[in-house]
Design a protein around this nucleic acid. Structure first.
Lengths: 258, 258
DNA sequence: TCTCATTGTGTTTATTTTACACAATGATAC
DNA sequence: GTATCATTGTGTAAAATAAACACAATGAGA
């Protein structure tokens, strides 16, 4: 005998313990093989993609809600995480897309009730992580949780594409105050990797020689030996961050890039 | 015959049409006589000071709520207004102060009911205005609405003092991207006034000659004649902004100050 | 051992920042 | 009138920084 409903309710929100008009969306950025990626969720049974997000418990700090969501998706405990904007749209584009999605949710997950019909204000959080450190786990509504190159993101629900754009713009503008290197690079890395990271964020090429000299002069890098696995060329040094010095420079907002 | 309740309900919130867990607090900054000031409200009948704030209507954009609150207090239609942080505290300091205030509100404004017992997430908005352009109007809970020098603010309710501090820190850090001159200075001004404004924001002295040359070189100032009312000294030029050029420089984030 | 893309560092030039000098101004005091 | 003087507008030299490019060293692969 076939089940009557091919999409039985597998998801239950404890709605009574959540703030009814505020949510969190996370733009989780990773860097791998020379490109920036964002963590996105593929919905169960539905042709929808979205950012990892969630709701805030009645007695939970907003930042803690973001941390919890991040930990649930990536397993990470102490990632770099900061809010970058609160999106307060009441209607317009968001609502028009939402109506389709609401229908889909209603028919597939009737147990959620009218929760998704609430009007939510959502705070966008930016996280920067090392993909290799993550143990990706989709949420109850999703079938998978994957890294997608920022240059080639699928269409996301609501205004999530715009949220990603704004997160990237934030990173670009706040570059001198964000721990991009420390958060996105592995423990040791070559100067070429470091420069490529900056170039993918800034969207422009940097002079190799000047980048190298500037970074070294800041005094936050420690040489860790040589990487002997490249091709037919000089083996580059490996570097790691002097975390104390790095933090000190960041707080003073001393620029890595003018 | 005396009224039974010396504090009759004079204030009614249309609670049904408001988001129940989100509010807006405005740090409205003005500049006058060489000092930065913030607009604060003195509560009716209570020894309390607070920032202008309010709630968001169900179908209102968060930014529009902030605009509405700002217009209600100052009469201004097109001020510079931007959000700078969303405060998501669930308990701690905020709640402990809040309990006193809740008692006061309950006994004095019983019609409000338990609204103020909700847990609110609040988005801080920064506005920069010219005090001389404002027609100050207190809100329903307040008896007055006044400019207070930032250096000498009274103790404010909740965590409003911390919100002000964070707003100022935001202005300092984002100085090169915020229209401080255009927003805070009158139509015409002397270079000395302009420099004093930057000095009060940055909290340090700037070289007079270099400041002047740099600002002139940017090409956003128009000379408007001389100010002939000073003391025994050379009369300074008056300047005004070339608004198009000013906007262009701001968007590119070209620095006024390195 | 020769090749060669890549790497580390040096040098030169242009630009910006900093510090300070100095003449011009114009209301005030005499 | 005119001498005074704090302030203002501009200039200039020194120091620091950024940009552009040169070049030798490296080391796996041919």
């Amino acid at each position: 005998m076939e089940p009557l409903n091919p999409y039985p309710p597998r998801f239950m929100l404890n709605v009574d313990k959540l703030l009814p008009c505020h949510s969190v969306d996370c733009v989780i950025i990773g860097y791998d093989k020379g490109a920036l990626s964002v963590l996105v969720l593929k919905w169960k049974d539905l042709p929808l993609w979205s950012l990892p997000g969630g709701f805030i418990k009645i007695d939970e700090h907003l930042d803690d809600a973001a941390l919890r969501i991040l930990k649930d998706r990536t397993g990470l405990d102490m990632p770099f995480l900061t809010q970058f904007h609160t999106f307060g749209q009441a209607g317009g584009k968001r609502m028009s897309v939402e109506s389709d999605i609401r229908e889909l949710i209603k028919s597939n997950y009737p147990s959620i009730g009218t929760w998704f019909e609430n009007r939510f204000i959502t705070t966008g959080y930016l996280a920067m992580v090392q993909p290799s450190e993550c143990r990706l786990v989709p949420d109850e509504l999703s079938e998978s949780c994957v890294w997608m190159p920022i240059k080639d993101l699928p269409e996301l629900i609501y205004d999530h594409n715009a949220i990603v754009d704004q997160a990237i713009a934030h990173v670009k503008r706040q570059l001198n105050y964000l721990p991009v290197g420390k958060s996105l690079l592995p423990e040791t890395f070559t100067m070429k990797t470091f420069k490529l990271l900056y170039e993918s964020i800034l969207g422009r090429e940097l002079d190799r020689a000047n980048f190298q000299k500037k970074m070294l002069k800041l005094g936050m890098l420690t040489r860790r030996g040589k990487e002997n696995k490249g091709g037919a060329h000089k083996a580059p040094y490996l570097y790691s961050f002097d975390h104390d010095k790095y933090q000190e420079l960041l707080e003073k907002g001393i620029g890595f890039i003018p």
